[in-house]
Simulated scan of single mutants.
Amino acid sequence: MARYETTVEDGTIYVGTADGPLEVGTVEDAVDTVGGPSWTIVYSEEERDRHPELDTSDEGLTVDVVDMLRAMTHSERFVETLAAQPADPPADDDISPRLGLLVGKLLNNLESGLD
């Protein structure tokens, strides 16, 4: 099953596709959306209670958001969904739906800790 990489060139985020790179948005907008260039991994008591088998040894580790972004790979289905999203932000928002979808996945990865 194919996995597609995330790359960053000249401040722009791209996701690979079968037809070549898909432009997603700017690194600056992604970093602003997640709240800054670094992320400290934390686990709530609720998470610990709900998942007692969860490995929380990475708690307190601060990671670079752009490094985490570059490390992301995507399924063909995700890439197709990403490509179907508008690349331009609507009038009432600062980021495009395409970038919003990718940042949502990034946030999910950041909130889940490191494997």
Score class of each variant (00 low, 15 high):
residue 67 D to L: 06
residue 55 D to Q: 10
residue 31 V to T: 03
residue 12 T to M: 09
residue 12 T to L: 10
residue 66 V to N: 07
residue 33 T to P: 00
residue 102 L to T: 14
residue 50 R to I: 02
residue 72 M to R: 07
residue 57 S to F: 08
residue 76 E to I: 04
residue 31 V to G: 02
residue 32 D to C: 06
residue 82 L to H: 08
residue 98 R to Y: 13
residue 113 G to A: 07
residue 17 T to V: 07
residue 52 P to A: 14
residue 61 L to R: 14
residue 49 D to T: 02
residue 20 G to K: 13
residue 82 L to K: 02
residue 1 M to Y: 14
residue 32 D to I: 02
residue 57 S to R: 15
residue 80 E to L: 13
residue 56 T to P: 08
residue 58 D to T: 03
residue 95 I to F: 04
residue 114 L to W: 06
residue 64 D to G: 01
residue 84 A to G: 09
residue 5 E to R: 15
residue 5 E to T: 14
residue 26 T to S: 14
residue 91 A to R: 09
residue 38 S to E: 15
residue 10 D to I: 03
residue 101 L to I: 04
residue 113 G to Y: 11
residue 10 D to F: 05
residue 89 P to S: 04
residue 33 T to E: 14
residue 64 D to C: 06
residue 28 E to G: 00
residue 26 T to N: 03
residue 31 V to N: 05
residue 43 Y to C: 02
residue 55 D to W: 12
residue 52 P to D: 15
residue 42 V to K: 04
residue 74 H to P: 03
residue 96 S to P: 08
residue 21 P to D: 10
residue 70 R to A: 01
residue 88 D to F: 09
residue 67 D to G: 07
residue 18 A to Y: 01
residue 34 V to T: 14
residue 5 E to I: 13
residue 102 L to N: 08
residue 2 A to T: 14
residue 101 L to E: 14
residue 66 V to Y: 03
residue 83 A to K: 09
residue 9 E to L: 07
residue 13 I to N: 02
residue 26 T to P: 02
residue 77 R to S: 09
residue 68 M to F: 00
residue 58 D to W: 06
residue 34 V to N: 11
